[in-house]
Design a protein around this nucleic acid. Structure first.
Lengths: 217, 217
DNA sequence: CAAAGGGTTTATGAATGCATTATTTTGGGT
DNA sequence: ACCCAAAATAATGCATTCATAAACCCTTTG
């Protein structure tokens, strides 16, 4: 998802990316509390860029800044996931409908098609991790295609929040055969310019995913 | 909307609130560029808290930080308003449906009822400004009632962005008789626990408002 | 007169310094 | 032991300092 291999930019960006990655990967555990000097020394920089990165993470809802106690790595509760899925179930189907109505070209849909094929292949190969990657690809490509920049931002932020919960339950969930079918269904509806169909397919997709995941929390 | 009369808290908060207010009221005009030292001296504080406030405003989408050129007060384009309304038209109707399904008590709905009555009174009195206030009240109260905290955040942020465009066109738009009716309609559907009705009413409300406003841009 | 070059100014990114204040520790006193 | 007060500790909020490099300006040159 991130591609900052050689781009170092500023220390703030570096701190932001590294902390975010650490949170996503649970290298920093939920409910852990870290003080600014602590983070600064771990990252090898002064408190200043760390503070600024923390403000951003706090806007992203990944961290809560508690005066004198440090940055609290926010856990993702069941209630959080309910909120997140309610929003996704409103935003993404609407965006899918708009996109379908625009009758996107096959060229535009190619990345989605690739992702779906990768998912199908991963299922056959029993490669859950690759499947999850292809899933990410699909949703990223969809977001990019759908033209609303604010939706990109919002959904990405929500996905950052939801990521850990999804990862933790990935192995506890059934093999995502159904999910893969749903992706193809979404793609088909986009491809045929069926707005209502795309909306419904996306909504069913998120609804089932939500149920499955929430049942495990 | 803001009630920080005597609460000053930190300088960062102060800077954040004051800058946001200045942007909302167009005291800082769109496309204006201000450097950190400039803002700092205007607000009578050092660059540090100003920087931190600017990071927040930038997350809010009110400002863009351009290295060496300062903070650019973002204008609200027609395209922005289209994006914003597309999102509102997805989020709020869904939230309204959920709220209606919960069968909220009359006590809970009281603030909405008050707001609708204030709108009707304002219409009769020809007080557009008061009407706009009551409109805000309605939407704030609705947001609070609907239980999703992330939706509160997101919609509030979008409204902060949309505020200037709405204000600029307020006088150019027809007397909001229709809008007032729609609010009552939403309220009635919430009150009777009609989820689909509440969703549709809210969607119609936003759709008409969007059309009206976008036509003026 | 346009373009190029060099020196100066200035905004930023980041480190450091510092006062304040919450938290923790310590040490009595009961 | 236990509770409370006072001292010690430490984190934060903010100011200040500093290095860097972009932007600006002014002169010089083709």
């Amino acid at each position: 998802m991130t591609s900052e291999l050689s781009e170092k930019k500023t220390r703030v960006d570096d701190a932001y990316l590294r902390l975010k990655q650490a949170i996503r990967s649970s290298a920093l555990s939920p409910n852990e509390q870290l003080t600014e000097p602590e983070i600064a020394s771990r990252l090898g920089m002064s408190r200043t860029p760390v503070r600024e990165a923390l403000i951003r993470l706090s806007s992203d809802g990944l961290v809560r800044l508690i005066p004198r106690r440090g940055a609290l790595i926010l856990p993702v509760s069941k209630q959080d996931m309910e909120e997140i899925y309610d929003i996704l179930m409103a935003l993404e189907p609407a965006a899918a409908a708009k996109l379908a109505a625009r009758n996107p070209s096959e060229a535009e849909l190619a990345p989605l098609r690739q992702a779906v094929e990768a998912m199908e292949a991963a299922i056959d190969a029993g490669e859950l991790t690759q499947w999850a990657e292809a899933d990410d690809q699909f949703h990223d490509a969809f977001l990019k295609l759908q033209g609303n920049g604010r939706i990109v931002e919002m959904v990405s932020t929500l996905n950052d929040q939801a990521h850990r919960a999804r990862m933790m339950t990935l192995n506890a969930r059934p093999i995502p055969v159904q999910s893969t079918k749903e992706h193809r269904e979404i793609l088909d509806n986009l491809s045929s310019g069926n707005a209502q169909g795309a909306r419904d397919a996306f909504e069913r997709h998120r609804r089932r995913a939500a149920q499955e995941l929430l049942a495990l929390m």
